[in-house]
């Protein structure tokens, strides 16, 4: 499985950059799903030993089910029921977002260069891939107007963190990762509910409208 790690990481980075540059909501959600799927695969690929242990399989399955299937479905349904317009509506243009993604990549590489542990052989691209996802998600949170895109950004961020934590599975207990996953699941659902509320109250999910609370 280890052979797949490198291409997977490259793919993840590409998906990330894609997330930052797509213009259609549907694609945005789809790419988030793809990211989730790649994450599930990455967990399998990163598992130590020739054949992954059963608990890694379970976790990968759970990740695939939740991140690759449940979230995109849920988000798409939300999009449909809210009759959203198809565009992402950025604060910061796509080109700039992409640049920000590249900057995130560079910062991740720098971070990776500062953080090295003797004896710990992480896949060479793990660090940039995870942190690009993380910072890319944050960039989405910052640069997109729609509440739903912010949820996607949050998901991308979480995916990055999850990816970063994947190698620790080799030594750790799975139940903790499952609990984290569950928490994120609930979080996304709560956010989804609130997005519905926002739409009903404001007739829009443009968070740019959210500026009545300030000093």
């Amino acid at each position: 499985m280890h052979a797949f790690v490198e291409p997977l990481m490259v793919l993840l980075v590409l998906v990330n950059l894609g997330l930052l540059s797509v213009r259609r909501m549907a694609w945005c959600i789809r790419l988030a799903g793809v990211q989730g799927a790649l994450l599930g695969l990455a967990i399998l690929a990163l598992a130590p030993g020739a054949e992954p242990e059963p608990h890694v399989w379970y976790l990968a399955a759970a990740v695939l089910a939740i991140k690759a299937l449940a979230f995109p479905m849920f988000l798409r349904r939300t999009m449909r029921t809210l009759h959203l317009r198809a565009w992402v509506e950025p604060y910061i243009g796509y080109g700039l977002s992409l640049l920000a993604g590249l900057a995130a990549l560079l910062f991740s590489l720098w971070l990776g260069s500062r953080l090295a542990i003797p004896g710990l052989h992480l896949p060479p691209l793990l660090f940039p891939a995870a942190f690009t996802a993380f910072f890319g998600g944050l960039t989405m949170l910052v640069s997109r107007k729609k509440a739903l895109t912010q949820v996607v950004g949050f998901l991308a961020m979480e995916n990055g963190i999850f990816l970063f934590g994947a190698p620790t599975l080799a030594w750790g207990s799975t139940w903790m990762e499952l609990a984290v996953l569950l928490d994120v699941l609930v979080a996304v659902f709560v956010m989804g509910i609130v997005v519905h509320r926002i739409d009903r109250t404001f007739d829009s999910i443009d968070v740019g409208l959210f500026c009545s609370l300030r000093d």
């Binding site: 949170l141 509440a147 912010q150 709560v190 956010m191 609130v194 926002i198 109250t201 404001f202 968070v207």
Partner: peptide
């Protein structure tokens, strides 16, 4: 309060 909740959550 909805605005506050959303900000809180995010």
């Amino acid at each position: 309060s909805l605005e506050a909740t959303w900000k809180y959550l995010i």
